[in-house]
Computed example of a mutant assay.
Amino acid sequence: MTPGSSRPLWQRGTPYVLLLPSMLFMALLFGWPMIQGISEAFRSPDGAGLDNWRRMVDEPHFWDAVRNTLLLIVTVIPLQFVLALGMGLLLQTKLRFSRFYFYLWAAPLAVSDLAAGLVWLSIFTDRGFLNSALSDLGLGTFSWLSYQNTSTMLLAVVLAEIWRSTSLVLVIVVAGMQMIPKEYDEAGQVFGGSSWQRLRHVTLPLLKPNLQVALILRTIMGMQTFAVAQALTGENFPLLVGETYKWFAQLQNPAVASAVALLVLTLSLMSSAAYLRLLRRSGAEEGAR
């Protein structure tokens, strides 16, 4: 006999009854719009079909948007994690004014995507602060955001994204570091472990759940990058979410916009599942050792 089988039926069903309103709310808020979006993506004048997907793929900037989105993710996320870990380790040393530094580094969390893009636009535009500084030094000016200079456009978007969203990773990393008992690091010191060895064999393994959450969140947010690039480059640096906006707002075609949005959702889910699988496998291998 299981522990809960002796209770009356109405008591066993109470948790589900209490969860029912929130489940209904989530279904209405997310489930129904998702079903509508999926059906819209496969809807065509002749019925269900792949016409919207063919139009999406045949659009001239689509593959550039896919390339730029993936390139932005593989460039920004590793740099953000290195910076966040470095800043978190600095804060752990209890250096002077460390609380002030934390608030300073976390300040970009309060800045919207569009505002961050406009801030960096004032730096990289032809008459911006960077060109003014270069001109004062006698080094000439450069068109950083010209459509002919894709590498510098990528650089501008990468720097803006790092400045805007590294703070999110930092907050998650610092929260995880505060949960690690100091005795573990002290034990590593007693056994002669160097700073690098303690980081590799003590801090990082214990931070793994936090890093996993941060990695999934940042990848999903990276897939959704739009306002920063839009403010800096307009349509010269296309991204997948920008394609969704263009099809919906400019081309007045919500069906193809739904197809692009569904593609972004699929890529986000696939990357999250891959992260969970790889991290679970690596954890199992470490446990076997």
Score class of each variant (00 low, 15 high):
S272W: 01
L154C: 00
D113C: 02
V76E: 13
T233W: 04
G234L: 07
A274D: 04
G47A: 14
V256Q: 00
G37A: 15
P181H: 03
L232K: 05
A187R: 04
F100D: 05
R54H: 14
M270Y: 00
D51L: 15
M87R: 03
M87L: 15
G234D: 04
A187D: 04
L204E: 08
A259D: 03
P78V: 14
I73M: 15
I220N: 05
A110P: 02
V74M: 15
T150E: 11
E186P: 02
F191T: 11
F248Y: 12
I77W: 05
V228P: 02
L29A: 15
T219A: 10
P209H: 08
V228K: 03
D64W: 08
S132K: 09
M26C: 12
S195K: 11
T219R: 04
R198L: 07
Q11P: 00
K208T: 14
D113Q: 11
L199F: 14
V66N: 09
P205R: 10
E186L: 04
R96M: 10
K94A: 10
M270L: 15
L89A: 07
P45C: 10
E186N: 11
V17Q: 05
A41G: 09
G37C: 13
P181A: 01
N236G: 09
S195H: 09
Y147M: 07
S5H: 08
V173C: 02
F30C: 09
E161S: 11
F191R: 06
F129K: 06
A274W: 05
T166R: 00
N52R: 13
V119Y: 13
L109A: 13
I35T: 11
V57S: 10
G283A: 15
P205A: 14
G86M: 15
E243C: 06
R12W: 06
N210M: 12
L28N: 08
L104C: 09
A249C: 04
Q178S: 13
Q250S: 12
D185K: 01
L90C: 12
V82G: 14
T125N: 08
Q36K: 15
A107M: 15
D64K: 13
L139Y: 08
A107S: 15
M26H: 08
G283P: 00
S132H: 11
L50E: 08
M23K: 07
T219K: 04
G234N: 07
L20F: 12
V241P: 00
A259V: 03
F226I: 03
F226C: 08
L154T: 01
L269D: 03
L118Q: 15
P78C: 15
R280C: 00
V228H: 08
A175H: 00
W10C: 07
M34D: 03
G117N: 04
N236C: 02
F129W: 12
S135M: 11
V157C: 02
L269K: 01
L154P: 00
Q92C: 05
G192N: 13
A133V: 12
I216P: 06
T125L: 10
V157T: 00
I73D: 12
L240Y: 08
F129M: 12
G140K: 09
L18Q: 11
L145D: 02
A84I: 04
V241K: 05
E183A: 12
I220F: 10
Q92N: 12
H61C: 07
